[in-house]
Design a protein around this nucleic acid. Structure first.
Length: 583
DNA sequence: TTTGCGCGCGCG
DNA sequence: AAAGCGCGCGCGCAAA
C-alpha cells in the first residue's frame, strides 16, 4: 500500500509568474492523522517524508511540485495531482480546490490575500486545503481507477506531462526587446496614419456611453445635432438616458455597426459590405490588435530575463488540449507579413538555437484513421482514400488532392476539409472560401457523393453518443460529455453533434501530441530545453553545437515512432534563430 | 473607480 | 431549413 502525504504550499503571489521569493508555509496531512502546518525547515520536513517513501499528493502539481523542488526537495519520483484526476473524471466541472471543497463538505472560508508573510489564518487555510485534497483524492481516484483507460491516460500521459509544463513555464521564451520597440514604433506610426485618413475623419460624431445619472448644468443645452461635447437625450430600451456626442471611435464595434448600417461588424461582414470606410476600419483594427495585444501587452509581461513565462493550463479544455494564458503564447500572430515580424521577435538567445517541429495535417490524419477503422470499407471504399494517401505518399497534400478531384482551387478544398472536421454550413464555408453560397452548396454535394463515408462515420459517432446519454470516449479513454445531443431544440442538438464529432478527433490529437512531447523531452534531456508547444507544434531551445543532433532526434521521435497502429505521423524538424525561421 | 459581459480576433 | 471545433485577451459599454 502506497503511503500518501497530501501537500500544499503557501507562497508569495509572484510565484505564479515563476518568481519564487517566499515560501510561507507547507501544509501536509498523512492518512488518518490531523493536518499539520510547518513554517520552518520546510524543505527538511518534506524531504524526510519523501525519503521515507511517502508519495506526495498535490492539487495542481505543476505549481507545488515546482515549489518543492525549487526549495531543494529531491527524489520526488512519484506524485499525484487531484486537479488532474478531477479533470479526467469530470472534465466539464470546475477543478479549483474551493469548488471541490464545496462539493465535498468543506464550505468556503472567507477569503483574504496572503502576501505579507505567514499568519495564523494562512495556516488554517493551508490545513484545510490539504484536508480537501485528501477528500478529493479519496473521492475521485476511486472513480478514476474504475475506468481503466482513463486511469492509464492519467498515469502514462497526463501525470508525466506535468514535467513538460514545468519546463516550459520555468524556461519561458526569449524575446528581442530592442527590435520589439522598433516594431512598436512602426505600428504606432501606421495607426496614426490610418486615423488621419480623410474618410475616417469625415465620419460624424457618434453618441457615447449612456448615463441615467447625468444632470444638466444651466450652461449646457440638449441638442440633437451631432456636435462633439453636446448632450443628447436618447431612447434606451424602455427609458431615456443622457448621452454625449463624441468623435467616432473605430475601435467601438457598436459605433462601426451604426455608421455602416450593419447588425454585426466582424471582419467577414465588413469585407462583404464593400464600403471603402469598412476597409479602413479593418486596417485600423488589425494594427490596433497587433499594437495592444501583441505589442505593448507582451512587452510589458516580459521578465527581467528577457523571457516570456506564460502558463500552460492542463485542466481547461474539453478536448484534452492545453490552453495558455498570462500571456497566451498559443495565439501569437503568425500569418501574413506582420505575423512573420511578430514571430521573428521570439528568438534564441546568443549561442543558442531553436529547434521546432510541426506535425503535418494531424487532425485530418486522425480523421482518416477513424474512417479507415470505423467504416466498412467493403461497402464504402472511399473510406480508405485519405488514409491510403497519408500512408503511402510521403508528400500527401489532402487539400490539393480534394481540389483535383472536385476541380476547385486548393484554398476552397482546404475550407471543405475543415468544414468536415467542424461541421460547417455551406453558408459559413462560402464566406471563408470567398465563394457564393450556391457554389459552395454544389461543392458540398459533390464531396458527399464522392466521399459518402464521411457522413457514415459522423452518423456512427452521433448514434453512439446519443445512446450513451451524451457520453463518449476518444481512443485513449478521455471522456467527452455532450448530453445536448438528445435535446429536441435543433440548435442545441446541432451544436452538440458538431462538438461531439470534433471531440474524438481533437482529443485523440491532443493525447498523441502530449505523448510525443513527453518522449521528445525525455530523449533530449540535458541536450535541449522544451520551451513551447502550440497544439501541433513543439519547440526546443539548445546550444548552438547541439542543434543538429537535437534536430535529428526530434525528427526521429515524431516520424519513426509507432504512435498509433495505422497512423502515419510526420513532421519536419527545423533549426533557426527565431520562431519565424523555424516554420 | 471597479466589475462583468459581449464583441471581435489572434492562434491551431 | 439551418448549422464552424478548441482556446485567451483587449476593448467598449453599462452597471455597481
Amino acid at each position: 500500500m502506497t503511503k500518501l502525504i497530501f501537500c500544499d504550499f503557501e507562497t508569495n503571489e509572484g510565484a505564479v509568474d515563476r518568481q519564487l521569493t517566499d515560501v510561507w508555509c507547507l501544509g501536509y496531512k498523512l492518512q488518518g492523522a490531523p493536518p499539520q502546518v510547518v513554517t520552518d525547515n520546510i524543505k527538511d520536513v518534506l524531504q524526510s517524508f519523501i525519503d521515507d517513501g511517502y508519495v506526495p499528493v498535490f492539487h495542481n502539481a505543476a505549481f507545488d511540485l515546482w515549489v518543492a523542488e525549487s526549495i531543494g526537495v529531491q527524489n520526488i519520483k512519484a506524485f499525484h495531482d487531484t486537479m488532474l484526476i478531477h479533470y479526467l473524471v469530470a472534465p466539464t466541472e470546475s477543478h479549483s480546490l474551493a469548488s471541490l471543497g464545496e462539493v465535498l463538505g468543506y464550505p468556503k472560508l472567507t477569503s483574504s490575500s496572503f502576501n505579507d508573510g505567514y499568519t495564523e489564518q494562512m495556516g488554517t487555510y493551508c490545513k484545510r486545503d490539504v484536508e480537501i485534497t485528501e477528500a478529493a483524492f479519496n473521492e475521485y481516484y476511486k472513480l478514476l481507477s474504475s475506468i481503466k483507460p482513463l486511469q492509464s491516460l492519467y498515469f502514462s500521459v497526463e501525470l508525466p506531462f506535468i514535467r513538460c509544463i514545468i519546463d516550459m513555464e520555468v524556461r519561458g521564451v526569449h524575446v528581442d526587446k530592442e527590435r520589439w520597440f522598433d516594431v512598436l514604433k512602426g505600428l504606432e506610426a501606421e495607426q496614426l496614419e490610418l486615423l488621419d485618413d480623410p474618410l475616417l475623419k469625415s465620419v460624424p460624431p457618434q453618441l457615447g456611453r449612456k448615463s441615467k445619472t447625468k444632470r444638466m448644468r444651466p450652461d449646457e443645452q440638449v441638442s440633437t445635432d451631432p456636435e462633439i461635447g453636446k448632450w443628447c437625450l436618447v431612447e434606451h430600451g424602455e427609458e431615456y438616458k443622457w448621452a454625449m456626442w463624441e468623435p467616432f471611435n473605430p475601435a467601438s464595434s457598436q459605433q462601426v455597426g451604426n455608421v455602416l448600417g450593419l447588425d454585426k461588424s466582424d471582419s467577414d461582414t465588413l469585407e462583404e459590405c464593400g464600403n471603402p470606410l469598412a476597409s479602413i476600419i479593418l486596417k485600423y483594427r488589425k494594427v490596433t490588435k497587433m499594437l495592444s495585444t501583441y505589442g505593448e501587452s507582451l512587452l510589458k509581461q516580459t521578465h527581467a530575463d528577457d523571457r516570456l513565462h506564460g502558463s500552460y493550463n492542463q485542466t481547461v479544455t474539453r478536448t484534452g488540449r492545453l490552453s495558455s494564458s498570462k500571456p497566451n503564447l498559443q495565439n501569437i500572430p503568425s500569418r501574413g507579413d506582420i505575423g512573420g515580424v511578430i514571430r521573428s521577435l521570439f528568438i534564441a538567445p546568443p549561442g543558442r538555437k531553436l529547434v521546432s517541429i510541426d506535425l503535418d495535417q494531424f487532425q485530418l490524419r486522425i480523421y482518416s484513421w477513424y474512417l479507415h477503422n470505423m467504416v466498412d470499407t467493403g461497402e464504402f471504399p472511399d473510406a480508405d482514400a485519405l488514409w491510403l494517401d497519408f500512408n503511402n505518399n510521403p508528400n500527401a497534400d489532402p487539400h490539393q488532392a480534394k481540389a483535383d478531384v472536385l476541380g476547385i482551387p486548393r484554398g476552397v478544398a482546404k475550407t471543405l476539409n475543415f468544414a468536415v472536421l467542424f461541421g460547417a454550413s455551406p453558408a459559413k464555408a462560402a464566406v471563408t472560401a470567398g465563394t457564393t453560397v450556391e457554389e459552395m452548396k454544389g461543392f458540398f454535394e459533390t464531396q458527399d457523393s464522392l466521399f459518402p463515408s464521411g457522413k457514415v462515420l459522423r452518423d456512427t459517432i452521433i448514434k453512439a453518443v446519443r445512446s450513451n446519454r451524451g457520453v463518449l470516449f476518444d481512443l485513449y479513454g478521455r471522456r467527452g460529455w455532450y448530453p445536448e445531443v438528445n435535446e429536441s431544440d435543433w440548435g442545441l442538438k446541432g451544436r452538440a453533434e458538431r462538438q461531439a464529432f470534433n471531440f474524438i478527433i481533437q482529443a485523440t490529437e491532443a493525447t498523441i501530441v502530449k505523448m510525443i512531447i513527453i518522449e521528445a523531452r525525455q530523449r533530449l534531456l540535458g541536450k535541449a530545453d522544451l520551451i513551447m508547444t502550440v497544439h501541433d507544434e513543439i519547440t526546443f531551445e539548445c546550444d548552438l553545437d547541439k542543434a543538429e543532433s537535437v534536430r535529428v532526434i526530434l525528427d526521429d521521435v515524431v516520424n519513426n515512432t509507432p504512435w498509433l497502429p495505422g497512423l502515419k505521423v510526420t513532421g519536419t524538424a527545423t533549426i533557426g534563430d527565431n520562431w519565424h525561421d523555424v516554420h
